[in-house]
Design a binder for these strands. Structure first.
Length: 494
RNA sequence: GCCGCCAUCGUCUAGUGGUUAGGACGCAGGAUUCUCAUUCCUGUAACACGGGUUCGACUCCCGUUAGCGGUACCA
């Protein structure tokens, strides 16, 4: 067998890129790259009914966004082209014929109505519903005659009777299946397309895949594939079935129904690709040094299947958010600025993009809110007052002001005092603003006001909210003119 | 129903026969502080159950139960 490790993802293009696909891509990518191998993406577009236009493009874009770029793919190309199964139909036909000639497969002319009826009857009788092998004894000659006449047919594989089929999974070890519980799987559908079971075996063989890494939900189908490899006389790749990500309530696979499953959703929310990858890695694997925050590079370097956890993890948005916040806080201001521009460009938020156009100003705003972001989209709500006057109706402003401090007269005195002190500042420097702060503290002390009551009305006057970064940091960034103007507005509204 | 996988705090996990069962998220409290947030400290909370094996089981074996997955001309 080939020396080079070759792994692949084989998603079917049925919608927006699923987070589970990214998770599979990460694992396959890490294993291959950690061993100097290749990571391949093959599109399993064999179900024409479920095919969604644009799905491949969406996945391609996200794989690049995440930095999990395949060495070979429908877009990248490669030496085993084509990487789209719909373009490989003759290949599957050829191998299906080979199976028939070896008596490992047969034509089946049963209608779907008959199949349903048979299964229903079996269910009624309390036996596992399976195909009853009605067509298994048709001779090849007769079958080919009927095919020639234009009858609808599928090709089914023959599953041997009374045999224990051994599947060896690199993580789970040996798993035994009773062949009598396995259906004579359809290999080629009546539309001439292969089923997954056929296509995956043929393509993994032809594309020299060394490790078949896939979700645990595929485990029950592996004896069929093991059999197919045997029928063809091909060497089986290593099999690894990794846990499936579950919904946050633990009920079922991560899906649209509960919360969100598309990678795009998390991008639109302002999660960073590295943070998502970090999260995805840590739910099934732990860093050798016990780190919670680690780079994909570390995952690539240390990851091995034997360290993978065995349970299906639940999706935990809180933890993802925490990790994302950690990544945001580590960013340089200019990096965060670039990411914000990229984010709001992607979400097409013209208003916020307009704000960010003033780069110098934004670079002063960002440090004040950086530690308050857990996702990029938090930005807008935290900084609006830096870019626009607080929009409040007069009564709203008044209520907020009164609530924030004590009585009206006191607030009036306070705000006027601050206004005059700010006006007196000749050079707009941090040290000078500290002096103003000291003056306010003195005033508060003289009047026996709580410091909270001295600062909160000012904050509300300037920002229109009761939460903001440290007041004098805000004042410094706002500048003298805007500060005075807003103080005036507040005084008038009283 | 049948087949398979699996089982440590609410969640993600460490642990491989003898531990005060460790860490992280979350939650609660505290410190810092002009508010919010950050950061730091403290606390909270777990070995599903029943049999074995053993001097000794969270750890090994068997069963039960729960959960998940599969049971298609979907992947």
């Amino acid at each position: 067998m080939n020396e080079t490790v070759r792994t692949r993802i084989a998603p079917s293009p049925t919608g927006l890129a699923h987070l589970g696909t990214i998770y599979q891509a990460l694992i396959n990518y890490a294993y291959a790259k950690g061993r100097g191998g290749n990571f391949i993406w093959r599109s399993e577009d064999t179900d024409q009914a479920r095919f969604v236009k644009g799905a491949e493009e969406n996945l391609n874009e996200h794989l690049h966004w995440f930095g999990l770029v395949p060495d070979e793919s429908p877009f990248e190309g490669g030496k085993f082209e084509p990487y789209r199964q719909s373009e490989r139909l003759e290949t599957y036909q050829k191998y299906a014929k080979e199976l028939i000639s070896k008596d490992h497969a047969y034509y089946c002319f049963c209608t779907s109505e008959r199949l349903t009826k048979v299964r229903e009857q079996m269910q009624k009788d309390g036996i596992p519903p399976m195909y009853d092998k009605y067509c298994i004894n048709l001779s090849i000659e007769e079958s080919e005659e009927r095919v020639k006449k234009g009858e609808n047919f599928v090709i089914r594989m023959k599953i041997p009777l009374d045999e224990t089929i051994k599947v060896y999974d690199e993580v789970l070890g040996e798993i035994l299946f009773d062949s009598n519980t396995i259906d004579d799987q359809v290999l080629i559908k009546s539309d001439g397309f292969p089923t997954y079971h056929m296509a995956v075996v043929v393509d993994d063989y032809l594309m020299e895949i060394t490790h078949m890494v896939r979700a645990r939900e595929w485990l029950p189908s592996s004896p069929k594939q093991v059999l197919l490899y045997r029928y063809f006389g091909w060497e089986l790749p290593k099999l690894i079935h990794v846990p499936v990500i579950l919904n946050s309530d633990g009920k079922g696979k991560l899906s649209k129904r509960h919360g969100h499953s598309s990678a795009d959703y998390y991008r639109l929310q302002g999660f960073l690709p590295k943070a998502i990858l970090n999260y995805l890695a840590q739910i099934i694997w732990n860093h050798p040094k016990g780190k919670e925050i680690f780079d994909v590079k570390d995952f690539v370097k240390y990851f091995d299947f034997k360290d993978i956890s065995s349970q299906g993890p639940r999706f935990d948005l809180d933890k993802l958010k925490w990790i994302n916040g950690q990544y945001i806080r580590k960013l340089k201001v200019t990096e965060l600025y670039e990411m914000l521009v990229e984010h709001y460009t992607y979400t097409k938020d013209e208003e916020t993009l307009k704000w960010l156009e003033d780069k110098d100003y934004s670079l002063k705003v960002i440090p004040l809110i950086q530690e308050r972001l857990s996702i990029l989209s938090d930005f807008k709500g935290l900084v609006s007052y830096f870019y626009m006057d607080p929009r409040h109706s007069e009564t709203e402003a008044k209520n907020l002001l009164i609530k924030s401090g004590q009585d009206k007269d006191q607030i009036m005195v306070l705000l006027s005092f601050v206004h005059d002190e700010i006006k007196k500042v000749e050079s707009w420097k941090t040290v000078n603003l500290h002096k103003v702060e000291t003056e306010i503290r003195n005033l508060a002390e003289k009047n026996t006001w709580k410091t909270l009551n001295a600062f909160m009305p000012i904050r509300v006057a300037l920002t229109g909210t009761r939460q903001s970064p440290p007041l004098f940091d805000v004042i410094e960034v706002l500048g003298q003119e805007k500060t005075l103007q807003r103080l005036n507005q507040a005084i008038q509204s009283l």
